[in-house]
Nucleic acid binder design. Structure first.
Lengths: 139, 139
DNA sequence: TTTCAACCTGGAGCGCGCTCCAGGTCAAGC
DNA sequence: GCTTGACCTGGAGCGCGCTCCAGGTTGAAA
């Protein structure tokens, strides 16, 4: 149950100092402890919240929805069902995101293979042949 | 080699009409054909560019970099190497993105399993036990 | 011939998620 | 006691990628 300085919390969570302050300002983080002098002190608990937020942001959840989740958590144990549902909906979106990403990655790889097959350097041979489909400047 | 109306190009590419116009304005698309009356006519070739842009956007490439790619393509066959390199760098970033997404998806799933294990509804049993790690309001 | 939806242009506006700044305070080390 | 760097606040600004708007034109169908 140690306390972490703002910069330590920043490095551990991967958020910038400004972002941590911003998150507190908009109410995503709340009740962050302070020293007598007014400096923030982050607990392990705060840190695990931050890691969750890191997860949710990295998977594309908008901040407004994270706020909703945090709010529910603050409202107490009886919102557990809603929180679970929220995360499950998000997980589904993430799955779709992963499928899309994989599809488009395959597309990208195909494109790269097109270049790999290309005759390289100053070989005066086929230009404008073995294009992809059409006859003009293909991507 | 048919021609497509703007709205057809939009639905086929998944970009909005405004986005297509925007892409032309910033020079990402160029030399889009016009009717005598000034309406855009998209060719199959334009469409395949759009599908490539769709791929690159979906995988997170910034527009500026797509512009760079398009510019290189316009500069002719001799930039093929640069274009290939650009795509390969991007593919590497996409791979990292996929790894991160998968990691965080696992994290998210774990979180959800935490809720699934939770005693549900008005069972007066353990509250504030079987939390994740600490003793206070865990995420 | 008239209608009307689809299109055109230039430019302003917006939502998101930070990021930066000025001007000040705090506290650990010398 | 002084220095110095980490921290504080409120609020403005920014970069990105569109999105919307006003006001006008086009062209296919009825």
């Amino acid at each position: 149950m140690r306390g972490y300085s703002p910069s330590e919390a920043a490095t551990r969570s991967g958020f910038s100092l400004d972002t941590l302050r911003y998150y507190e300002k908009i109410g995503l983080l709340s009740d962050i402890g302070r020293t007598s002098g007014g400096r923030r002190v982050f607990t392990d608990d705060d840190l695990s919240w931050l890691l969750l937020f890191r997860c949710l942001r990295d998977t594309g959840m908008p901040i407004a929805e994270m706020c909703r989740y945090a709010e529910l958590a603050r409202d107490g144990e009886h919102t557990a069902g809603q929180r679970q549902a929220l995360l499950e909906r998000h997980a589904e979106r993430v799955e779709e995101q992963m499928r899309l990403l994989e599809r488009q990655y395959a597309h990208l790889r195909e494109k790269i293979r097109f270049y790999e097959r290309l005759p390289v350097g100053p070989s005066p041979a086929s230009e404008s042949a073995d294009r992809e489909s059409s006859t003009s400047s293909a991507p």
